[in-house]
């Protein structure tokens, strides 16, 4: 995979991350909405949503590096009816615009709570659609390694994994920032982040288990297929890319275990979750590296039929 092709893991992983983080954030916001006034709710979601929006921008910028003529990228939407790529781009544009509008509303318009809620869910829908289209692009009969339901599942599982672990980091950064900046934040905010931390860690654990199961399924799937291209892909995974496979599994396990252990210890000692920022950085980095390696292997081990 040459450098220009690295734009693909950049784009796909970051879109997964931003969609998952927005989804997790919006669930938390919806569940918390009845217990706190709208102004405080907006204050609590201001910085997370800005970071999510910035991630979408970074993802789209990264995607353009993949193109020879990035300034003509908008033409891709013209083929919406026939191309999953065009649909992906279209939904991604929607995702970008809706999240951008939502960010502007949360930052600059203190009212219209319901509008923000609906806009958030619409943005999430657009994000989900983008990922669906993104996964669907690779369901090609000529690409045996990709052409399975596992592709969908792994994309959505990746979305949930990256979204949950990233949101933990974002919420903790925001909380630490508010304390460092001497902003007044209510005890409710601290409790909110604490509860979110626990639930998102549970989601991280479950999705990581799911991803590992999917990987195992992929190995089994490739082995069961008697197709030479599938065997070639399997051979690549078990030979030249084996160190990366080990790294991916190792980093994922290490990141999740690290996250769970630090959280568990803090809860046991009844310590401040603000002090968990550095462990969360490490866990997030490890899990993100695992996700990127997984995506790299996804692209690197496919073998096209006929070549």
């Amino acid at each position: 995979m040459n450098l220009r092709e690295w734009a693909l893991p950049v784009y796909t992983v970051l879109i997964e991350l931003s969609s998952g983080a927005l989804f997790a954030l919006w669930i938390l916001r919806t569940l918390t909405g009845s217990r706190i006034d709208e102004k405080n709710l907006d204050e609590m979601t201001k910085i997370p949503i800005l970071i999510i929006f910035s991630t979408i921008i970074a993802a789209m910028a990264g995607a353009h590096l993949h193109l020879s003529r990035p300034y003509l990228s908008f033409l891709a939407v013209l083929n919406f009816q026939h191309s999953w790529l065009s649909r992906e781009i279209t939904f991604n544009v929607f995702f970008f615009l809706l999240t951008g509008s939502l960010t502007a509303l949360v930052w600059f318009v203190p009212e219209h709570y319901k509008l923000k809620q609906w806009l958030g869910w619409a943005a999430i829908l657009a994000g989900f659609s983008t990922i669906y289209c993104m996964a669907h692009i690779y369901l090609l009969p000529t690409q045996i390694a990709w052409n399975s339901t596992k592709t969908f599942l792994s994309y959505y599982a990746g979305m949930l994994l990256l979204g949950s672990v990233s949101l933990i980091t974002i919420l903790l950064m925001d909380l630490n920032f508010s304390f460092k900046n001497n902003q007044e934040r209510s005890d409710f905010h601290v409790q909110f982040v604490r509860d979110a931390f626990i639930w998102l860690t549970r989601v991280t654990v479950m999705t990581s288990i799911m991803l590992m199961l999917l990987n195992a399924y992929q190995f089994d799937f490739l082995q069961r297929l008697q197709d030479p291209t599938a065997q070639t892909s399997l051979n690549l995974l078990l030979s030249i890319y084996l160190p990366l496979v080990i790294l991916q599994i190792g980093f994922l396990l290490l990141g999740v275990i690290w996250l769970v252990l630090t959280l568990r210890r803090t809860m046991k000692e009844n310590g401040s979750i603000r002090k968990l920022l550095s462990p969360v950085y490490i866990a997030n980095t490890l899990i993100l590296i695992a996700a990127i390696i997984e995506r790299f292997l996804f692209y690197a081990t496919h073998v096209r039929i006929g070549i």
């Binding site: 970071i51 970074a58 980091t169 950064m173 950085y281």
Partner: peptide, 9 residues
């Protein structure tokens, strides 16, 4: 405080 978080990616 956001720099390390942003640099993670």
């Amino acid at each position: 405080i956001f720099i390390p978080g942003i640099l993670i990616v």
